Simulated scan of single mutants.
Amino acid sequence: MYIYLNGKIVQKEKAVISPFDHGYLYGLGLFETFRVYEGHPFLLDDHLERLNHSLEVLNMNVSYSREEILRALRPLLAKNHLTDAYIRVNVSAGIGEIGLQSDPYLHPNLIIFAKPLPPAMNRQEKKAVILTLNRNTPEGVERLKSHHFLNNILAKREIGDMPDCEGIFLTKEGFLAEGIVSNLFWLKENVLYTPAIETGILNGVTRKFIMKLAQRKGIAVEEGLYYVADAKKADEVFITNSIQEIVPISLFDESEMPGNNGSFVQDLQKQYKNLSGYLWSRNEW
């Protein structure tokens, strides 16, 4: 496997960064994950929009354009002989002295990982399990897709190695939040519901895209504070992220759901597949 590291494509075994990188010392790092479909990085502009905003928040003096990432991504895909791939773009703060830094980080490290994926839309449904571990609050004003992943790791340990399950976080107040690596949606009487950003969830790129898909179909979308009982009354439940795409839920906290048989999810999956080969942003469609 080859990775991209600060302008060079290197074997993963030969990739090195300094132990003084504040991404390592203090968790000052960000990442975006997305899929490449037959060479096209789906919704890349949306991922970069979130990444560049988060870089400003973390005081990293850099931003990335579509053209810059493509100049790195295309030879990386070719070197790994990939046309369909899982991509992780990772930016860490770079070298600093031991101690907290308030000055901007001028030389962040950019690493891009690419690995093969099975074909999209494998139609795997999952069971949703309510976690006993609460969702932690964001470190700042909003949750960033950052290196601070302990809450997610502990949640994954709680449910164990169960690929057919997703753990669902609640806030300390008992409101539905999100999955360990996903955003949560449910449909009830032609209204699509999803927990509000105020619950501390990550505002997922796929989350925003699904909300736009639903609105274009004439489906009302409501964000708010909801309890487990609200979702258990749903007609359909599903979770989303940029790698797994749209995953229907067959069992939500022991309540049976349509899973793969849900007509709304089936329609969303079809639209998603049709758009994944060329769309750069939800805003251009």
Rank of each mutant, 00 (worst) to 15 (best):
R282Y: 06
N274K: 13
F252A: 06
H147M: 13
T194M: 02
N283G: 09
Q266A: 12
K233Q: 15
W186Y: 09
L110A: 08
I130L: 04
F238E: 01
L251M: 07
I168D: 00
I98K: 12
E97K: 14
L48Y: 13
G29C: 09
L100T: 13
K172L: 04
Y227L: 15
D161T: 05
N283D: 12
A128S: 10
N122P: 09
Y86W: 12
G39D: 04
I243W: 03
H53P: 02
I111C: 02
L187V: 05
H47F: 03
D103N: 15
H40P: 10
V91T: 10
K188F: 06
N6D: 15
H107K: 15
A231C: 11
R88D: 00
V91W: 01
L184E: 08
G224I: 11
S63Y: 10
H22T: 12
S281D: 10
A72D: 10
K127G: 03
P104I: 12
L110H: 05
E56L: 14
A155C: 11
L5R: 11
A231T: 05
Y26R: 02
I180E: 03
N260F: 00
E125A: 13
V237H: 07
N183A: 04
Q244I: 00
L76C: 14
G27W: 00
L43N: 03
L48I: 12
E49K: 11
G140P: 00
V62D: 01
Q269E: 10
P195T: 02
L279N: 02
I243H: 02
I210M: 01
I168R: 05
F175C: 09
K145G: 06
L73I: 14
Y226K: 05
K12G: 10
L144A: 01
S65Y: 01
T132W: 03
A155M: 09
L279E: 03
S18A: 13
K156H: 06
E236L: 07
N59P: 02
E173P: 07
Q269K: 14
A229H: 12
K270H: 11
C165A: 02
T137C: 15
A229D: 15
T137Q: 14
R135K: 15
G179P: 09
L133I: 09
H148Q: 11
E284T: 12
T206M: 10
K14Y: 04
L110Q: 11
Y193H: 06
E223W: 08
H148C: 11
I239N: 00
I153L: 10
W285M: 05
N80G: 12
W280Y: 09
P104K: 04
P163M: 01
Q269R: 14
E13L: 01
V129M: 07
G7T: 12
K79H: 12
D267L: 01
E198C: 04
F175W: 07
H40G: 08
I219V: 15
T194Y: 02
P138L: 06
V36S: 00
F113W: 08
V141E: 11
S63M: 11
V57E: 01
G94N: 03
D164N: 12
N274T: 12
P258A: 14
L30Q: 02
L184A: 02
R35I: 02
R71S: 13
E198A: 09
G200K: 04
M121K: 14
Q101D: 10
S250C: 07
M121D: 15
V237M: 08
V91F: 05
E198K: 09
P119N: 11
T171L: 00
S276F: 05
Y105M: 07
E256W: 05
A128V: 08
H81L: 15
D84P: 07
D235L: 07
R207C: 03
G140Y: 15
A220L: 04
